[in-house]
Write a protein that binds this DNA or RNA. Structure first.
Lengths: 224, 224
DNA sequence: CGCATAGTTCGTTCCTCATCGAAGCATTCT
DNA sequence: AGAATGCTTCGATGAGGAACGAACTATGCG
């Protein structure tokens, strides 16, 4: 009967299918409007609105009003991490899908996780960066190595820019069960990938599809 | 509407207060009987039984029948990790408790996480073991260093024993947000701590309280 | 065998909460 | 101003599911 934090409250927020779909959609990292989320969840606008206010009250979402649009986004990396953890369990215990489906395959290879890249490619990238000692990880925390600034500057990423959020963070990958790179650097790299059009985002999905030349360019830049 | 794994299903299982209490109790690592869990959750036996079968069906629990007792336990480290992740969010967004309460303080310092030690002490221990290169971590994975076997053998822990489960694993700590040591080695160390009576388990809680001499002995053995 | 303990199953009651239509605000466009 | 869009609030409906008591099954003890 002793309870620390009210875990049931949070879990029940995620426990409704409509809300789970919304959160899942927001794992894409881009904030979405109420009507987009209603569509995503397959419910009417009033219903969605009700769900959204509950999620807000629960502290799982942030709201940015712009004119007559209201953009909802995940409250932070910790919430995203929780969703990934639940996804991992659901994946593990869930009924093995008969056929993995092409989109699932693509999701495994590369997908957006909140604001950075996840999946096999992202895990491989972090491995390689650590191996080349551009990044250092003693503990869970990842730090910049001495050669990090010039290395990323050459690709057009400024690692000295923003002090607000940690530059590097490890984020556990549900498909591979190993870490990939989050933090502002992780976000900047995803921006770079999309800006250079090395890859495109699958419509209405978190999957990230690399074009053949884009994949080569990515590997040259980060795995080379 | 596209869903990968059914995250709502899993989350809603945790989303009921009675079930959440049960899972929380099982985070202590020891398997419990149905009646103990009923007491823990504050519900009647039939109600508890119903919840337990739902958790079983959802794949979150394992069952070991021994005579007329049925011992329920968490299905695995991944489930435990998910609970910790949800706890972390609940902790972060939850109404800031007016006073942290002594037990919460103790929980921060040292507690049981499934089958190993968590909390500030556990995080410090892992840091120190890595620093002394008794353990090595390149990636998320932790490996034994060359001096690991003799070092642990001197304390009475055989690291070569059991091949079933990974010897070392990193587990994210909700109170400190950094990793502590899980896996068979983590479990063996907790066993050692309790066997040597360096610390005792707080009744009906996950908190682990070190005695002053016990704390010294622990630090000599693992932080020295 | 008979009795006690441990758990599950059944049936009923009750209440929460998800859902939507209609109406109400707010903002932008013309 | 008036019309159109984006979203929230209100009210009514309905279904799912959490709860318990009573009856049933299974194991252990004498």
């Amino acid at each position: 009967m002793r309870e620390g934090p009210d875990i049931a409250r949070i879990a029940s927020l995620v426990g409704d299918p409509a809300r789970a779909n919304m959160l899942n959609a927001l794992m894409g990292g881009t904030a979405l409007t109420a009507s987009e989320l209603a569509l995503e969840a397959g419910v009417s606008l009033p219903t969605a609105s009700s769900h959204l206010s509950k999620l807000m009250e629960g502290g799982l979402l942030t709201l940015a009003s712009q004119g007559r649009h209201r953009y909802y986004g995940l409250a932070g990396p910790q919430v995203a991490g929780m969703i990934e953890a639940i996804t991992g369990v659901a994946e593990a215990v869930g009924p093995k899908r008969v056929r993995p489906g092409p989109r699932d395959g693509a999701m495994r290879v590369a997908r957006v996780c909140y604001d950075h890249l996840a999946g096999e490619q992202a895990v491989a990238m972090l491995d390689r960066l650590v191996e080349k000692e551009i990044l250092l990880r003693d503990d869970k925390e990842i730090r910049l190595g001495p050669s990090a600034a010039p290395h990323f500057a050459a690709i057009g990423i400024d690692v000295d820019a923003k002090p607000r959020r940690p530059v590097c963070r490890a984020c556990l990958d549900w498909s591979v069960r190993r870490s990939h790179l989050a933090g502002t650097l992780g976000a900047a790299i995803l921006d770079k990938i999309l800006a250079e059009k090395w890859a495109r985002r699958e419509k209405d999905s978190r999957a990230v599809i690399f074009s053949p030349p884009g994949k080569q360019a990515f590997e040259r830049a980060f795995l080379g």
